[in-house]
């Protein structure tokens, strides 16, 4: 029973990370109808930037200063990627987009190793690694959950209560109508990319103290993020968040009680395919009408 509770709670903590990535994926998907396969690598690269900002070998800034600076830089980077790389090919076929996403994947992955070398790095946490509730959850994991919930709350408020957030939703859902009310759709897309990159950066900075910082640290995490997005519904940000938490818990349950830790990624694979086949709308999403 103790093991069950421990696994559930720690699943909730990693689920928070998956929820962030799932949200980032869904934000991009809603805006441009594509999956950002490079979302994880972008997050990883952001985390390296944070590491550089706070490490003694870099600028040696305090954690929270580096944390905020990294979010801002990631936002700018994400928006720039949309404007520079994706805006020119917005009308190109699906395959072109997939190729460019994979190109970004490859480039960020390489660039991280190229600039910061491939040896795993320790990543600081302001929450420490002491037990929070003995045998159940550590202080860092509590911090992960808390930061994620604050972040998700802020994002929810932004989309729900600000005119810009409303315009972003409108631009993503019906770009042409949005233009007709004077919304600069291209600008909103760039904002969306910036936000997604920032959310990813937070996910990266929270998971890095657990996994160590390496260029490949986000591979599996992104897969769970995708699984969360698919489970929750690709057209529903709230669904994606719930899906992310669910996948985090499910991962731990399956890993501990059913298939063992060695098949965790296979669980994500099976989950993605089965949900796409059986219930493509996910928990909270709409069925996307297939255009022939």
């Amino acid at each position: 029973m103790d093991l069950f509770i421990e696994q559930t709670v720690s699943g909730l903590a990693t689920g928070a990370i998956y929820a962030c990535l799932a949200l980032a994926v869904v934000m991009i998907y809603q805006a441009i109808d594509h999956f950002n396969f490079a979302q994880g690598e972008m997050a990883m690269f952001s985390t390296y930037i944070a590491w550089y900002l706070m490490d003694d070998a870099g600028l040696g800034l305090p954690f929270w200063v580096a944390f905020v600076a990294c979010i801002v830089l990631s936002f700018i980077g994400g928006a720039a990627i949309e404007r520079i790389v994706f805006a020119p090919i917005s009308d190109a076929p699906v395959l072109s987009h997939i190729i460019v996403f994979i190109a970004l994947f490859s480039m960020f992955n390489s660039l991280a190793g190229f600039l910061f070398d491939f040896t795993p790095k320790n990543f600081e946490t302001p929450f420490g690694h002491t037990p929070f509730i003995d045998g159940v959850i550590s202080s860092h994991r509590v911090g992960m959950i808390a930061v994620t919930l604050i972040l998700l709350g802020l994002i929810y408020a932004f989309f729900r209560f600000t005119p810009i957030g409303l315009a972003m939703r409108a631009a993503a859902a019906s770009p042409e109508s949005a233009r007709l009310v004077g919304v600069r759709v291209g600008f909103m897309l760039a904002l969306g990319w910036g936000l997604a990159a920032s959310v990813g950066a937070v996910a990266g900075m929270l998971i890095a103290p657990i996994t160590f910082l390496t260029p490949d640290m986000m591979l599996g995490t992104l897969l769970y993020g995708f699984a969360g997005a698919v489970v929750g519904g690709l057209t529903s940000p709230l669904g994606a968040v719930i899906g992310g938490f669910m996948v985090g818990i499910l991962e731990n349950w399956m890993g501990t009680f059913v298939v063992g830790s060695q098949l965790k990624l296979t669980v994500a694979l099976v989950l993605i395919i089965v949900v796409l086949l059986v219930k493509p709308a996910g928990l909270l999403g709409r069925v996307v009408v297939k255009r022939v």
């Binding site: 315009a167 939703r169 409108a170 859902a173 019906s174 109508s177 007709l180 009310v181 004077g182 919304v183």
Partner: peptide
């Protein structure tokens, strides 16, 4: 739209279906 205050009510209405009525109006004043 912004400069000359031209409001276009398009064919098929161009409703933002996923947001509320009042939010649609708010978008009109964006």
């Amino acid at each position: 739209v912004a400069k000359h205050k031209i409001a276009h009510v398009p064919e098929g209405r161009g409703t933002f279906v996923r947001v509320s009525t009042e939010e649609n109006l708010r978008l009109g004043a964006f």
